[in-house]
């Protein structure tokens, strides 16, 4: 399950932003993250797809906010106050991803990134492109394009 274009695995080392969603430890490449916000005011959008939590105003731009837990099929968590939002860019659009907890920024050698194990839940498995270990935790590297797309 490797993303076809601009394969980050080809690079020597990749920096990841590591965070938690519903007990799962996940990472996305840091160069896809444009900012991290807390205390975002989200305007709910009725009749939107389930995993869309709403929209928010990010310096004058309207950004769609996705509930990552629901997007990954982990759970449909409600928004907790002060829940961090990662703003990632994909296909020319910035999208906010709500996560439970931010962890760290880690640097991972490309060769240390392993293929995605088969036993992951389906939605999560289809949006991951690799796994690696960081401080004795197994981190699942998400493919931002697929998460957002």
């Amino acid at each position: 399950m490797m993303p076809t274009s601009s394969n980050p695995a080809k690079r020597q080392a990749v920096q990841f932003l590591v965070f938690k969603v519903c007990e799962a430890i996940l990472g996305i490449e840091i160069d896809r993250v444009s900012q991290i916000s807390r205390n975002v005011t989200i305007t709910g959008v009725y009749s939107a797809p389930v995993h869309v939590k709403g929209v928010t105003n990010l310096r004058g731009q309207i950004v769609t906010v996705l509930d990552l837990a629901s997007r990954l099929g982990l759970a449909a968590a409600g928004i907790a106050h002060g829940q961090p939002m990662i703003v990632a860019s994909a296909a020319g659009e910035s999208v906010g991803l709500l996560v439970d907890e931010l962890d760290d920024i880690v640097k991972v050698e490309s060769k240390a990134i392993m293929p995605v194990p088969r036993h992951l839940p389906r939605a999560l498995g289809s949006m991951a492109w690799g796994v690696f270990t960081s401080s004795e935790n197994l981190v699942i590297a998400l493919d931002v394009d697929r998460v957002v797309g």
């Binding site: 959008v45 009725y46 939107a48 869309v52 929209v55 769609t64 999208v95």
Partner: peptide
């Protein structure tokens, strides 16, 4: 301001 792609199908907006 236009909507992002996730919300383009919502014809109410």
């Amino acid at each position: 301001k236009p909507f992002g792609r996730h919300l383009r199908d919502c014809q109410v907006y």
